[in-house]
Nucleic acid binder design. Structure first.
Length: 668
DNA sequence: CAGTGAGCGAGCTTCCGCTTGACTT
């Protein structure tokens, strides 16, 4: 036994599930183990970057990784050799390199293998062509890590000093916050613009009716604001009834709708939020369970690749259950959008496509998420949907109306993946056929402000800018909420808190180019140059840090706490007579006595919004709207703590509901 | 269901991106 185990080779990957899969392919000559992600990192308690010594990182093995490293060291001692088989990207290469350092392996001779899919032939093939660690790729990761550390650990203390302790800033979280804050400003500044549309109801001689919208006047297509007022709309509508109308043109085309790609982390989080109302955190927790129980492939991915086997399995399921009309002759392939997407990774899909959700029994939410993943995958291998689109122009004098018809002729992937679309039926119409205008309806519209970000749209936006990774979308969204920078309102949309507004303002005014959506994209280009061996990584860090540090030092001097949150109020303390001043805490501004700690008098800086009704409990105070620590709205008496009335429901609405109930009772 | 800050001065707060269990209430 001892002799046998000494002959084994140790293969290290990053996750235990991947280890198990590969172990099944490799048999008894190999032992496959997992590193559980990065084994070394910068220390949590200090900067950990020796800026003056060419940005030398001071890596440590965090306590929680000690056990893993000790175990791997033991296995290494018994093994004939070690093979590093982590992902073929920047982070994967760095994990491999940190392993050589933590396990005292020779980084220039330790075997490094990569594969483009986790199948037996692919892994056997990879074992035949080992390489060594690509230090350029490792260095690109070090630059990324060090810049993130410098930004985070230099900007956060600035906020502690100038605003309040415990705050944070970073390349990713601060841009997320900025997006939410700036969207709020756009909404606040929005001025609605009026415009009108004119609809006509037509009938044919055969008494078939249809609707069309005014589309052209004197050969000129109407733009959105061409009819800007009621007066303009009425001028047009007056002229229309007296004209005689006929069909000027009929165009028929076939429209194809292609199925969406199978899920990545980002699109899964978006759809689960939209369709199931799951937070990204909940989605990831459920997906992790599905993954660990072998039901789905890995849930942190930005790739839309599908293995050939999975396509074959989908093909089989489709032909058995949906019939030959739904079978594609060849599997459908999707292109990866993300520049950093990993060819070796797959989209999130069911591991056994035959396990359709009806057969699936487990916790309800888990099943619903599986159902979503399964449908999206099957749909991706179905034919496109086809529509007959008809466009009909109706002319009367100088005026042309247009009607659009849309009829589904083949549902294709829509059979499995339902999406909203409107079918609109038009009667059979021919060119030059006369029609009658029965009714003209002018409609007033107003442009609407952009909508606040939801989890879904925020993740979509961050991903589009290349900010954050599949493993960080959900944690980032949690972080800006636990920091009290943003809240989710009743519609599950993000609104900045007073604190979030102030933090964003300070960062934008003083560190504009860092909390910018383009910052990540710009440095990613630099990281690419490092990865190709075009520049040393410390040079990139130094070019960034020089100007950054200079600016930071200046801002420490020039930005005063008093400018950010002025303290003066002019109010005198009713307990001790000293002046009351504005203080800034975790929950925003509040008013406190300047005699602290002798006098601990405080009051809220903002009066809570009043419902303008008597407190139902004490009949003396007024009911006001307040928020709990977590941000949830509740209603209480303004005489608190003398009166302890509190309710989740709006007591005014409750009263009204009760009255209508009573009226119903009376009628009976 | 309803909060919050400083200090002799020590020690701490904080980033992003990999990956899962292991402290206890």
């Amino acid at each position: 036994m001892g002799l046998r185990s000494r002959q084994k080779k140790l293969v290290i990957v990053e996750s235990p599930t991947k280890a198990k899969t590969i172990s099944n392919f490799l048999g008894s000559d190999y032992i496959v183990e997992s590193s559980y992600g990065h084994v070394r990192d910068l220390p949590k308690g200090k900067l950990g970057v020796l800026v003056e010594e060419n940005f030398e990182p001071q890596y440590v093995i965090p306590r929680k990784n000690q056990k893993t490293v000790t175990a791997l060291k033991k296995l290494k001692a018994k093994a004939t050799s070690v093979i590093l088989a982590t992902d073929e990207d920047r982070e994967g290469e760095a994990i491999a390199w940190h392993l050589t350092q933590a396990l005292q392996l020779d980084e220039n001779s330790t075997e490094r293998i990569v594969f483009h899919e986790i199948t037996e032939p692919a892994i056997q093939e990879a074992l035949l062509h080992p390489r060594t660690i690509n230090s350029n790729l490792v260095n690109a990761q070090q630059a990324r890590r060090v810049i993130d550390r410098l930004v985070g650990y230099k900007l956060s203390p600035f906020l502690w000093k100038k605003i309040s302790r415990g705050l944070s800033a970073g390349r990713v979280q601060s841009v997320a916050l900025r997006l939410i804050v700036e969207r709020e400003h756009e909404i606040k500044d929005f001025k609605p613009d009026e415009y009108w549309t004119i609809e006509g109801a037509f009938t044919t001689d055969e008494h078939e009716s249809f609707e069309a919208s005014l589309f052209k006047i004197k050969g000129k297509a109407l733009l959105r604001f061409d009819i800007h007022s009621q007066k303009e709309a009425e001028e047009i509508t007056q002229r229309l009834p007296s004209l005689s109308y006929s069909i000027a043109d009929v165009q028929k085309t076939e429209i194809k709708k292609t199925p969406p790609a199978p899920f990545t982390t980002s699109t899964l989080q978006q759809e689960a939020s939209k369709r199931l109302r799951f937070s990204s955190k909940k989605t990831m927790m459920l997906a992790q369970r599905l993954y660990e129980n072998g039901h789905i492939t890995y849930m942190r991915t930005d790739s839309v690749n599908l293995s050939q086997e999975s396509k074959v399995a989908a093909h089989r399921w489709i032909s058995e259950h949906l019939g030959s009309a739904y079978v594609l002759s060849e599997g459908r392939t999707f292109k990866n959008k993300s520049r950093l997407a990993q060819e070796a990774h797959e989209a999130i899909r069911p591991t056994k496509p035959d396990n359709s959700p009806e057969l699936f029994t487990s916790e309800r939410d888990e099943t619903r998420l599986y159902d979503l993943i399964w449908r999206r995958f099957i749909a991706s291998q179905l034919p496109h949907a086809r529509f007959d689109a008809t466009s009909v122009d109706v002319q009367g004098g100088d005026y042309i109306f247009r009607a659009n018809g849309n009829i589904l002729i083949f549902d294709g992937f829509l059979k499995i993946w339902q999406t909203k679309f409107e079918e609109r039926n038009l009667p059979h119409l021919q060119k030059d056929q006369p029609v009658h205008l029965d009714k003209v309806t002018p409609t007033q519209h107003f442009t609407e402000p952009p909508s606040r970000y939801s989890e879904a749209t925020l993740i979509k936006t961050l991903e589009a800018y290349g900010i954050g990774r599949p493993s960080t979308y959900a944690p980032t969204i949690s972080l800006i909420q636990t920091r009290n920078y943003v809240l989710k309102n009743a519609q599950r949309k993000f609104e900045p808190t007073e604190l979030g507004e102030i933090v964003a303002k300070v960062l934008i005014e003083n560190f504009a180019d860092i909390v910018n959506v383009d910052f990540t994209a710009t440095i990613e280009e630099e990281f690419d140059t490092i990865a190709l061996g075009g520049i040393v990584w410390q040079r990139v860090v130094s070019d960034f840090y020089g100007p950054f540090e200079k600016n930071l030092n200046e801002r420490y001097e020039t930005v005063s706490k008093e400018d950010i949150v002025p303290e003066k109020t002019g109010i005198l303390c009713e307990l001790c007579g000293k002046e009351m001043i504005i203080k800034f805490g975790r929950f925003g501004k509040f008013i406190a006595c300047s005699g602290y700690p002798e006098c601990k008098n405080t009051k809220p800086a903002h009066e809570p919004p009043s419902l303008d009704m008597r407190c139902p409990k004490c009949n003396v105070g007024d009911v006001v709207q307040k928020r709990t620590r977590k941000g949830r709205i509740f209603y209480g008496c303004n005489r608190w703590p003398e009166c302890d009335f509190a309710s989740w429901k709006n007591p005014k609405e409750e009263e009204r509901d009760k009255k209508t109930e009573d009226r119903k009772e009376e009628k009976k």
